Simulated scan of single mutants.
Amino acid sequence: MSRLWIMGCGDIGRRVARLYQNQGVEATGWVRSAASLSVGVKQGLAMRLGDMDQGCFFPRNAFEEAEIFWLLPPPPSGGIDSRLRRFLLAVQGAPKRIVLISTTGVYGDCAGRWIDESEPLKPQVERAKRRADAELALQAWGNQYNGDWVILRVPGIYAAERLPLERLQRGEPVLLEAEAPWTNRIHADDLAQICVRAMQVAPKHSIYNACDGEPLSMTAYFNQVAQATGLAPPPQLSLAEASSVVSAGMLSYLQESRRIKNHKLLNELGLQLLYPNLAAGLKAVMRNN
């Protein structure tokens, strides 16, 4: 059986590992902090500690014929994903398959249009540009070594532990519904099963939008979370008003709008999502709390 590595084994990585554990398959998680290492060990995972920014990696033969989930985010600044590029340079043609977590942010602003995987990439903010560079690096690796890769473009991730409850409790404003951008999301458990399915059955060199296919406006998202959790709905501001009070990072999210199809994901991977929309996900959250 191929060796299985989860590079960047945080919350999503541990969910992926748990699915393999349920099948009796052991995964090795790679993390950058002792705290993350401890959490993985408590779950019963084989864990390794390393820092890609310092050029720390195992010998190439550690990844010989390995199946690798690359969940490690790019560095927080710059225009390239130097972590992934450094890793690919080290492992060369050793891995059997690499599944990369990217972002739907690589599409940039689509003015609310419905898009699929054929949409040209036009990342507008630095974090999305680094993700686009990671995709290019992985594709170049595949061309050089005949390497097998799959790319998952992921939108906002939510789960019981990943809801904007503190923001709602603080009463931070959102945009007027009429001005709010379209946003897309996926439940963390669904993303984990997508990762596993992509590793197991996706055709070589496939790209998928890993979303639930039922976008909402950003304002509708916050309102639904507030209603489900019994919190007050957030106040609403116009975009002109919000531009003077929200952070630059949040403003960049408000300036991108797209509705993303997931037909290819569901059809090619034969998937049935646990939570096909936010309402289903929030219902499960409240049932389990």
Rank of each mutant, 00 (worst) to 15 (best):
I6E: 14
G8Y: 09
C9R: 08
I12T: 00
R14F: 07
R14S: 05
E26V: 05
A27L: 03
T28H: 02
V31G: 03
A35E: 15
S36A: 13
K42G: 00
L45P: 05
M47E: 15
D51W: 05
M52N: 06
D53N: 08
Q54F: 06
F58W: 08
R60F: 03
N61V: 01
E64F: 09
I68G: 03
W70Q: 07
P73A: 08
P73I: 10
G79Q: 15
D81P: 02
D81E: 06
R85C: 00
R86I: 03
F87D: 05
L88P: 14
R97I: 05
I98C: 10
I98E: 10
D109T: 06
I115E: 07
Q124V: 03
Q124D: 11
R127N: 05
R127P: 02
A132E: 13
L136R: 15
G142R: 02
N146K: 10
G147A: 04
W149V: 14
V150C: 15
I151K: 10
R153V: 09
G156M: 12
Y158I: 13
E161R: 15
L163T: 09
E166P: 08
R167N: 13
L168I: 05
L168E: 01
G171V: 06
G171R: 03
A178I: 14
E179C: 02
A180I: 01
N184K: 11
D190V: 00
A192R: 07
A192V: 03
R197H: 09
R197P: 04
A198L: 12
I207Y: 03
C211Y: 01
G213M: 02
G213H: 09
G213T: 09
E214Y: 09
A220H: 01
Y221E: 10
Y221G: 06
Q227A: 11
G230C: 07
P233H: 01
P234S: 10
S238Q: 11
S238I: 08
L239I: 12
E241W: 01
S244L: 15
V246Q: 12
G249W: 12
L251F: 08
S252W: 04
L254N: 05
S257A: 07
H263L: 00
Q272N: 14
L274G: 14
P276N: 02
G281T: 11
G281E: 07
L282I: 08
K283M: 14
V285T: 13
N288S: 14
N289C: 11
